[in-house]
Design a protein around this nucleic acid. Structure first.
Lengths: 124, 124
DNA sequence: GGAAAAAGCCGATTGACCGTCGGTTTTTCG
DNA sequence: CGAAAAACCGACGGTCAATCGGCTTTTTCC
């Protein structure tokens, strides 16, 4: 998917113009600068990119970081399938974590412990 | 989304025909039986439904339970955004769990503990 | 056994959305 | 001012969901 490739090309860079994005991912695909421009425009309209006119060209930057987008998309799915209750979501998380490697359950526990320790800081 | 509504209408029922599904969710929407039939057919082709011919009519049933579908969709997102490493996925899970209610972190920990206890049963 | 009803199958349309450009207008700057 | 760069406009082909009409096949049942 070109849109995703474009986003990938933007994450970690602070503002790139169409030409630069095209140079990185458009040329390889043999597509025109115009195509990349349209894609940037569509992503902008969808709110996934911000842009700022610097002298002559727009500089595009991600409105969401990769992590945030992933969370939004997962959140969309969760919202669709968990009717208000949190359990289905949590159960799915545990299942998915364990899917590839049981070791992930330990990792998840560790993350969780860290998060809770941090969250409890101001309420001892 | 009609496809989702149809799936919802199928989960929890063991095999329904087009007519029955239409009666439940098609009539309310003022759409024809044909439309529901097409939707069932498309879901079947996509592998989301099974079907079995019983005398004259097909009886459709979900190929995946609601929970499984949710997991598959989340898994798709995760696969797209976590390039092999498990951490981004796990971090997203923790964030999403905490999003609505911090209490979910505790719930998640409990689920996790249960799962690990169970998983460790045959390897003490 | 044959007609009527039921169900399935085929193809068509519409409306989004994506990828892809070509051509035109606007902007910049030497 | 005039050329080059960038943006803008609009179009087209492809995919996919929703929607249906009508033809074909299968069932039903008098």
């Amino acid at each position: 998917m070109l849109e995703l490739a474009v986003l990938e090309g933007l994450w970690g860079h602070g503002g790139r113009d169409a030409k630069s994005v095209h140079a990185e991912i458009g040329v390889r695909r043999g597509i025109s600068l115009n195509t990349v421009q349209s894609t940037l425009e569509r992503l902008f309209r969808k709110g996934l990119l911000r842009r700022e006119k610097v002298s002559h060209a727009y500089l595009y930057s991600p409105a969401l970081q990769r992590k945030e987008l992933m969370e939004r998309l997962i959140g969309d799915v969760v919202e669709t399938f968990s009717d208000g209750r949190p359990e289905p979501m949590l159960a799915a998380f545990v299942d998915l974590a364990a899917r590839v490697d049981e070791e992930n359950l330990a990792r998840l526990e560790r993350l969780l412990a860290e998060r809770r320790a941090q969250g409890a800081e101001d309420a001892p």
